[in-house]
């Protein structure tokens, strides 16, 4: 079996301008932030990002990486709004397809099942169709229901962060919620999982109950060991959300000078340098 281990920068070297990238996790929970930070360091641009959005969206927006955003919401959970997402929306910097949360799942499922669309009731009557002119309805061949035909959300790449993985791409989550990471992987052409720790396959199987093994190796092309790789989002039970750091991120976004200081301190170096800066605290 293949050894799929690589570095965050090797993952990013396999991405290209204009790609559609799905990002797993939910809000400010179990986001593949080390991979996001590696994209921030790269020259990549014009990305289409598909996500249940949190600070992944904010940081990518801040760095000008996003051409189009496809999302159900963007929130930092304990802080309702992400400052950079708001800023980009309010200054007209990005195109958006804003969907109902269930529609986003439906689109990922359709892509994963190689279907052009799946029917869903969500969206009918709302402004989702009027803000997304490509949406169509479909009439049931069995009765008189007319439903939203949610188009497949095909991803070039899926980026997800789980608690443990083996070198072959089997991976498990140890927190309470798988979110939609498996659906992101099934919907994508290339799939990369970062994890807190790479363990032997035998140990992986005993990390949790069998149903915690969310990803198997046919769903994964690359494995990256990135301890703290979801920081500052939560990755329970390994660590909770770093609320102090998250607040610092929001405060830093308030003006150009403080943002420059934030990026200089945390986002200008390697992932190891980021983790070291985080360990030394938010106060400089």
């Amino acid at each position: 079996m293949r050894d799929k281990r690589m570095t965050v920068d090797e993952v990013v070297s396999q991405l290209a301008d204009g790609m559609t990238i799905g990002i797993g996790g939910w809000g400010s929970r179990r986001k593949p932030m080390a991979l996001v930070r590696a994209i921030l360091r790269s020259s990549l641009r014009d990305l289409t990002v598909v996500t249940y959005g949190g600070p992944d969206v904010g940081l990518l927006c801040a760095a000008g990486k996003v051409r189009e955003l496809i999302y159900g919401f963007v929130s930092l959970d304990s802080i309702p709004y992400d400052p950079w997402f708001r800023h980009r929306r309010q200054t007209g910097g990005i195109a958006v397809r804003e969907l109902d949360e269930g529609m986003l799942q439906c689109g990922l499922r359709a892509a994963g099942h190689r279907l052009p669309f799946l029917p869903i009731r969500a969206g009918l009557g709302s402004d989702v169709p009027s803000t997304d002119p490509q949406l169509r309805t479909v009439r049931s061949p069995y009765d008189d229901e007319e439903l939203i035909a949610m188009p497949a959300l095909h991803l070039d790449v899926a980026l997800v962060h789980l608690n443990r993985a083996d070198r072959h791409g089997n991976a498990c989550y140890l927190g309470p919620d798988p979110y939609f990471d498996d659906l992101f992987c099934l919907a994508a052409g290339r799939r990369y999982v970062s994890c807190e720790r790479v363990v032997d396959t035998g140990e992986l199987g005993s990390c949790g109950p069998p149903q915690s093994l969310l990803l198997n190796r046919l769903m994964v092309d690359g494995v990256v060991e990135t301890p703290g790789g979801a920081h500052f989002t939560s990755c329970v039970p390994d660590y909770g959300r770093d609320e102090v750091f998250q607040q610092h991120y929001v405060d830093a976004a308030a003006d150009g000078e403080s943002w420059q200081a934030f990026t200089g301190r945390f986002l200008s170096g390697t992932e190891e340098e980021y983790q070291a800066a985080v360990r030394s605290g938010v106060a400089s």
Binding site: G53, F73, F85, D100, E101, R121, A122, G123, L124, V128
Partner: peptide, 18 residues
Amino acid sequence: HPTRQLLGFRGAPGNTVN
């Protein structure tokens, strides 16, 4: 062209018709 971006649609469209 929003003057103030809020959360997004979240689950509201699906909740209300279901």
